[in-house]
Design a protein around this nucleic acid. Sequence first.
RNA 1: GGAGAGGUGGCAGAGUGGUCGAAUGUACCUGACUCGAAAUCAGGCGUGAGCGCAAGUUCACCGUGGGUUCGAAUCCCACCCUCUCCGCCA
Length: 427
Amino acid sequence: MLDIQLLRRDAALVAERLAARGFAFDAARFDALEAERKTIQTRTQDAQAKRNALSKQIGMLKGKGEDTTAVMAEVAGLGDELKALETRLGELQTELNDFLMGVPNLPHESVAVGRDETANVEVSRWGTPRSFDFPVRDHVDLGEGLGQLDFAAAVKITGSRFTVMKGGLAKLHRVLAQFMLDVHTTEHGYSEVYVPYLVNADSMRGTGQLPKFEEELFHVPRSDADKLYLIPTAEVPVTNLVRDEIVPLDALPLKFVAHTPCFRSEAGSYGRDTRGMIRQHQFDKVELVQMVRPEDSYAALEALTANAEAILQKLGLPYRKMALCSGDMGFSSAKTYDLEVWLPAQNTYREISSCSNFEAFQARRMQARFRAGQGKPELLHTLNGSGLAVGRTLVAILENYQNADGSVSVPEALRARMGGVERLTAA
RNA sequence: GGAGAGGUGGCAGAGUGGUCGAAUGUACCUGACUCGAAAUCAGGCGUGAGCGCAAGUUCACCGUGGGUUCGAAUCCCACCCUCUCCGCCA
């Protein structure tokens, strides 16, 4: 959520900055809503103050055993008007809130203006894509060739966009997640957390998935009014750890890492990446989350992105770092770097991590604050990034480390964890 | 699943219709005393929002949402959550 003070001061300026990300902010509507809110709120509060004063008077008179009929008559006249005002004010506040909850974050000044991913800016590249002297197979052929990747079984059990892994590949998948967790906790200073995979609507609103993106979520019904959502990323439960909290200054920065499955309905992506495990309804991800002081958040974004890059480097996977343009960023983000890993079979780089600074956008929705000294509570800045998407990392290893005979070498960094196994072969 | 208890300020804990945003204790901050500290004494000390240049002032908030009333922490309804015991269970 944006700072309403900023909108009151200059809604037109906000509209201009949001236009850069392709969002049509209706400044006229906002100004109109605000104007009415202001009058109605003032009138409501005046009426309430009057009612409170008279009621207090009745209390005092009764305490002294005196007659109250005159004051009662006076306050009786207030009733209908007050009720109407309160109702209208409630409507306006709901309307304003709904309006604000649907407005995306402002792009940081360093973000390039552009409509879609074609305007993203390549920041750096690491590693050299390997050249193959045999026909390159994609991860589906490789995994099925090994007898360790089974989409047919997943379709039978559940449906499309799920996968079953077996044997060495299943183990490699597990080992990858643990490798990432260990690197981030021991080398990068993150605290490991284990969190629920089902969350309530307040949590989804806090990080910005609701109210706008409900169709991208899976949910589990409970009572009528109350359902739980499967997390689309660990960002949701982990960031919400600080919802409605005032964190002491000396506890900052907070740095968390969590390994969770992620569930996405992928509504609207029919036909995209239908083959293989690039785009699944369920996938594992190791997520980095930070809560920092506002003045530290852009340095933290660089550091967090470097933390994710370190995993790719240790695994020897070539990648490039992209700074997303204004039109390609997520709803809540002020600035985002995507890390894209080289996939030989697709002959291109594909997203494997997305690292974002949300500034105070999520914190404002969540009332996530810190207190410096004796001062007023201030909003935190929140950040997160994948470190990394485990399924896609597995895909990248299969394709980049494949051999002519269809076997797959295990990256050096994982061999000890794999019990010394150097390559995955068909059983 | 069955039975019971309970959700009040950072924490503890009063308050069952009126002067209660809320006693008291504790924690914390400031000052006094002290060479300094402890102890003691005095004062201060919630969050959000509106109006205002400011001083200030008004409103809302006692789990959540409704209702009754001139007036609700207190009464009524629904829901959520926590705890205890029993049963079942990874």
